[in-house]
Nucleic acid binder design. Sequence first.
DNA 1: TTAGGGTTAG
Length: 595
Amino acid sequence: MRSSIPTIRTAGANCTPTILSQKSCLRPSPATKLLKQTHAKLLRSGKIHDAVVAGKLISGIANSHPSNLPYALTFISHPCTPLNTFSWNSIIRGFAHSSSPEKSISVYGQMLAGGFPPNNYTYPFLLKASTHLNDCRIGLSLHATIIRRGLDGLDPYIQTSLISFHAVLVSVETAHQLFDESSHRDITSWNSLIKGYVASGRHIKAIQMFHEMQDSGNVRGDEITMLTVVSACAHLGALEMGRWIHSYIDRNNLILTPNLRTALINMYAKCGEIESAKTLFREMEEKDVRTWSVMIGGLALHGHAKEAFDLVEEMQRFEVLPDSVTITALLCACNHGGMVEQGRRIFSKMKEDYNIEPTIEHYGCIVALLGRAGRLEEAMDLIIRSSVKPDVVLWGSLLAACMVHKNTKMGEIVVKEILKLDPENAGAHVFLSNLYAEFGKWDIVQKVRNFMKEQRIRKPPGSSLIEINGVVHEFLSGDSSHPQFSRIYMMLDEISKLVSLKGQSFPTGGVSFDINEEDKEVCLSQHSEKLAVAFGLVSTSPGSVIRIIKNLRICRDCHTVMKMISEKFGRVIVVRDCNRFHHFSGGVCSCGDYW
DNA sequence: TTAGGGTTAG
């Protein structure tokens, strides 16, 4: 049980402070009790009037537990306790790490108003607070103050704090510039920059920066570098690089902490190597809720729903309670396994069984689950009755289901809801365009397309990544920029002939635009995953596994072609789309054609 | 007497 907040009140105008317990403060924590006792002793002895002594006490209070922060604040309003910059910094620091970081900024205002000079310790805390507040204006204003006070360029902590703030909240380019200009580079400033690239989704660049750090010669990666870079590999699905980093950790005798093991399990699962993930997981002794959630999520991603359920039971036998993320992973497992009833049961009883309130993510999973199973009315009803405010992502889940089940009527309703929240939503406009195309209403289609063009609304392009010899190659739809594109297109030709030999042409059902069949064929044959698989076929030895990571959902046509290629070329093809893994082998996919 | 960097899902 959390202790309640103790307060100090002055007893009258004679300025003899006393400690008063609040009614609610029945059981302070042992640490808080000790601090209060110390405070009382200092008051009795008069030593509280020494600013250095008072500072130690205030620092202890402000950084012991967030619930003690109001107690620390009473020293600011107290007229008898002398304060110095150290005391103010301690309180600012406490709030910067609390759930009310805005109070760091207001305390800083009071500090300035009281004439206390901030120093080089003050600004890292304030920059941290502005990052937690997600407010770049405050951070930029602090940056200006730092320059005005001549503190930039002198202190490595301020420099790294600025790099970190800019990298996460402003722009990673500015952060990189500050990094280049900084007088002092150490592992922390490198980590801030690498993390900035990961935070802005530039995972390849993050790994490049890690290499650059190694080339610089004087800095060695630490646990935090590894956590960040392993996470970048997981996003990219870069298995070779991930394996290399795992061996780098061993070679450099870095300690495989539980956090690092969890990150590696996640990386192997996200890179398609679920067996390696399982081995690491089983070898691990100290598993926390994150470790279990990562493993359960990995199994879900690979469609191993039963194993995911078994693990949830097992974790509870080890007295680890599932959290919100675990339940999300479990609902994903139900979704990919088509386990509608189990999913509904977990969702409806999560509050009762685990004391976890459903969040919008849980609603997203259950809507996807019901929608995929064709229970569109039920999914819509759930959204309408939900305790959370539906966002574009939640409506988007239902729209995807409407598209799968070709329910244009509900699709239209959903699109309206999406456009109310985000008038420039690309997916909603494309849906409308395709819907009108389906009915041959080309004049309206043209209107929608023109609107999209005028407003510069574009769907993110389909992108597929494939890693060959540790180098990640990215292909976009219809991409001809790859240096080996002529070999790739020759292979695509070969694929299309093989597919035709089986009595089929390239399937064309997935595109409804006002274009002729041949154009459709070209369009589909150049989907990014097909370019990537063709490149994989010409760049790897016969029989080896081809792994592809796609940013969107794999379309039905590409799915069919992948099955054919796996059979004709005798290859295992592993595709991770934005939803799950597909393992193609011998003409069959592990998803059982349900995704 | 204080300080900068971190992993999971969606």
